[in-house]
């Protein structure tokens, strides 16, 4: 079954065709990172305008590279939430236009389900799995059952991990998007140089909090500034990253123990973080579970993950009709129940 997936929930306009949720036929992407860099973050109106300008061209590029005509597809999938409402609406409107024109069935996809599905592309991995989704907007631990249905075990109470990365990057004067730069600098710093807090580790749940960590970094930088100390940026990055990773890895390992699931999918933009990948792999080896992360190119937002998730959702009977809407806030429960 060949599905076209369209994703416009934030600052990437992306489309891809995936067969049976596993085989990537082709993908295309127009990134807006440079467009938003000068603003220091994603500007929703600017993002929506850009999506409108490029969405059909990106889709056509994916179709052409796959060498496919519309009648050779089986369904059209699109991210229907969560995300920036105006941005989501562009993808949803285009996808509904394609479905209307071609008569192909339509599937609305939850963005987080997409990130998790990215880890299945090109593998023989099968649910159930445990998923740790870490991105600019999300930090969640999810149980994924045999039918690719999600149950949220825990998540962030305030900032997402990726958001904390970007905020710390800004404190350090690193240009947006700063997350990957923090990761790169952290490779050259001492992770024990600063004792930043590991929030909520003593709590018996799978929740996170990262806003205190960001504040702790700010206080440390202020202290250095007042006392005239030179700030070793690499050390700040390494210590900050270690604090984030310690919490993510520990809570994930606890969720593995609690659920008895033996496979962890690491997904989302921050899954590209080298420090996190290494630390989770090491813990997996020690505790005897398996970690599966998507290739780097499929960690950030893309159309393939939407097409892959749509296949699994379709397999358990999920469909949308032309009334499909976009939702800035959308729970996995509402999505699975078809309340879109």
């Amino acid at each position: 079954m060949r599905i076209l997936g369209i994703e416009t929930s934030c600052d990437e306009t992306a489309a891809a065709i995936v067969e049976d949720g596993r085989r990537l036929c082709a993908q295309a992407l127009a990134s807006q990172v440079e467009v938003h860099a000068r603003f220091g973050g994603v500007v929703p109106e600017v993002a929506s305008r850009r999506h409108t300008e490029v969405v059909t061209r990106v889709t056509e590029q994916a179709m052409r590279e796959a060498g496919l005509e519309w009648h050779q597809l089986d369904a059209i999938a699109v991210t229907c939430g969560p995300g920036l409402l105006g941005a989501l609406l562009v993808g949803v409107s285009a996808a509904k236009g394609y479905a209307l024109a071609t008569g192909l069935p339509l599937i609305g996809v939850h963005h987080i389900a997409g990130h998790v599905a990215a880890a299945f592309i090109g593998t023989d991995l099968r649910p159930p799995v445990l998923a740790l989704v870490v991105s600019g907007g999300h930090t969640e631990i999810l149980r994924v059952d045999e039918q690719f249905r999600f149950e949220r075990l825990g998540g962030t109470k305030d900032d997402a991990a990726g958001e904390a990365y970007d905020k710390v990057a800004r404190l350090l004067g690193l240009r947006y998007p700063g997350g990957p730069k923090v990761d790169a600098l952290a490779q050259r710093g001492r992770p024990d140089a600063f004792a930043f807090p590991r929030s909520m580790l003593d709590e018996d749940n799978f929740d996170f909090s990262f806003s205190g960590l960001k504040t702790a970094v700010w206080h440390e930088l202020e202290r250095c500034r007042r006392s005239g100390e030179t700030v070793a940026v690499e050390d700040v990055c390494a210590s900050f990253q270690q604090a984030v990773i310690d919490v993510l890895v520990e809570k994930t390992a606890r969720a593995v123990a609690a659920t008895g699931l033996r496979t962890v999918v690491l997904a989302g933009g921050v899954a590209a973080n080298q420090g996190l990948r290494r630390a989770l792999a090491a813990r997996a080896e020690a505790d005897g579970f398996r970690v599966q992360a998507p290739p780097l190119a499929l960690c950030t937002d893309n159309g393939a993950m939407i097409a892959a998730a749509a296949y699994f959702a379709w397999s358990r009977g999920q469909r949308a009709d032309l009334t499909l809407n976009a939702h800035a806030v959308l729970s996995l429960e509402d999505w699975q129940a078809g309340r879109v």
Partner: peptide, 19 residues
């Protein structure tokens, strides 16, 4: 309406290019 106008434009472009 900024958000409004994009709905028809995106839909019309998708329909026109697909057909």
């Amino acid at each position: 309406s900024y958000t409004g106008v994009r709905l028809a434009v995106s839909t019309a472009k998708a329909m026109a290019t697909a057909l």
